[in-house]
Nucleic acid binder design. Structure first.
Lengths: 301, 301
DNA sequence: CGCAATATTATGCGTATTCGTCATATGTTT
DNA sequence: AAACATATGACGAATACGCATAATATTGCG
């Protein structure tokens, strides 16, 4: 599959004939015919019915033309960005830190209260995002430091220091029948509405696998991308979720309980920064402040 | 530009070397080297600095790798759809909605409680992100609907229905001296620590301009990207922030007050969806549930 | 109505370009 | 010195595409 083929699909859906498409794209008619054939072969899908010397789009073509349009839009966007970068578009020291969304409410401010006093001339920029995004932002040197979950490949451009750990727990509304159990496994969750995060990521795949092995079909009501929203949904009775105790501890004030999820799984959390880049004093101190606040947040009640 | 080049860029950003990339992609190292060169030539941008026999990504590479990732995701989606069409597979209907991060705690769950009951077979996927990201995700048809702030260019691929509005307010700790004022202007904020969001976006630039015209230097202590974190910083005494009353109303439970910020400015918020695409019944109902919850959230106490 | 003109798609054939590998040169790090 | 890294010359295979043409369908005109 290539971009030219997608352009043909898009234009053909619009013009209705290979000749008009060829003219619009500055190709020959036979070139268009071939590109269409190649795309159909690549996808193993008939996109146009050949009827009386005419091309009639199939329903499949309509669906996939949307996807093709999405790809071409993304390509245009990238070209536009490259153009911007070619044509080219400083201040107080800014220290940038990435944290999971779950940490904005109390964790981040508590971390910053003393820090701001100690570093009055430093401007802080906070990003609340997913582990994947933070990983990337650190790697790309957008962030000086980032707190993230250590899983899968970290990449050579990042150094991570482990600063916390957790275990998988099932977060349950306080008044739910499952709250009476000492621990939860997949079979306890048969027919229970689930709120799950991290689709297609290693830990989620392991979780999906444990359900499969227990022969339990997941009833996923909500897919979301932050631990915080998952906990909030649980607190509102929308279902139960399975996340790391590290995050669950940040939400102790909600009317939920958490129970170890079987099979046991542990998670490691680390502080990431770009490899080979020494932190400034301000950034290092923010890093230290983060570590202190983490210890506070994970203390037993 | 072709898809293989983009895969190289993506993998190279991840692995850091042409050899590892070649291995991961099943190519030769020289093939990778060439594809990278071709991409650089096609874009007329240096993506990697060649330093001591190593490839060091430029800031430009970081930006464009994101674009490349979007393209490749769209390609994967198309391939997945083709696969589904070939095998005739279908799954539960998934409705995807994008909301600002500020809405995860109480707004989103409240919105979903009744909805989940009414649509038991629908799976919901929630994304909490910035207006910019939501705009993009709707445009790319990743999201069915997205709640966003209407500002600047919306784009030809999106239809937006206005569903809420707000005015600029200054959010102040309840025990702060500024809380006694009926309204706040830039000159009231001389030497006051500021927590600001939305750097380089139109509304932020207007705010920066009002400070400049008042001859007041901004003492920005914290830059952040979500209204929620800004309000939380304010509640912890880290400074004051200027945001839309729409968001401030979501944080009434914090020990803060808000006062109109002079010069008056209003913001519009809308519900976005891809142009020309009719919503499914499930998506339309979720859209209606969102509107209802918005009205509830903006009621006067 | 019949026929010529026009429109449409697909395919044979040939040429130019692109893609990718092998082999190798050069430089850096362990 | 060995291992690791990137770039490039040379070459062959594969791909992209145009010209010319065949086959079929539709339209316009006498």
């Amino acid at each position: 599959m290539n971009i030219r083929q997608l352009e043909v699909l898009r234009t053909l859906m619009s013009t209705g004939s290979t000749i008009a498409t060829a003219k619009a794209m500055g190709l020959s008619q036979s070139g268009v015919s071939r590109l269409l054939q190649q795309l159909e072969a690549d996808l193993s899908i008939t996109l146009f019915v050949r009827d009386k010397g005419r091309l009639i789009p199939t329903p499949e073509a309509a669906i996939l033309a949307r996807d093709a349009e999405n790809i071409l839009l993304a390509v245009d966007r990238m070209s536009g960005h490259a153009q911007d970068l070619r044509s080219g578009a400083a201040g107080p020291e800014i220290v940038r830190i990435g944290l999971p969304s779950s940490m904005w409410e109390n964790f981040a401010p508590a971390m910053l209260v003393d820090y701001v006093r100690d570093f009055p001339s430093v401007r802080i920029e906070t990003f609340f995002d997913t582990t994947i995004a933070i990983n990337k932002l650190v790697e790309e040197r957008v962030l000086d430091i980032g707190f993230l979950r250590m899983e899968g490949e970290i990449g050579p451009g990042i150094e991570v220091e482990q600063v916390a750990s957790g275990e998988s727990v099932c977060v349950i509304p306080r008044d739910h029948r499952l709250a009476e159990l000492a621990e939860i496994s997949a079979k306890d969750l048969r027919d229970v509405p689930l709120i799950l995060i991290g689709r297609q990521r290693p830990n989620r795949m392991a979780l999906d696998q444990s359900f499969k092995q227990a022969g339990v079909k997941q009833i996923v009501k909500i897919e979301t991308h932050t631990n915080s929203s998952a906990c909030s949904y649980v607190a509102h009775g929308l279902g139960v979720t399975i996340i790391s105790s590290f995050y669950a501890n940040l939400y102790r004030h909600l009317p939920v309980v958490h129970r170890p999820f079987i099979p046991h799984a542990r998670q490691q959390f680390g502080l990431a920064r770009a490899a080979g880049v020494p932190l400034s004093i301000a950034a290092q101190s923010l890093s230290d402040a983060l570590k202190r606040q983490i210890q506070l947040s994970q203390k037993d009640i």
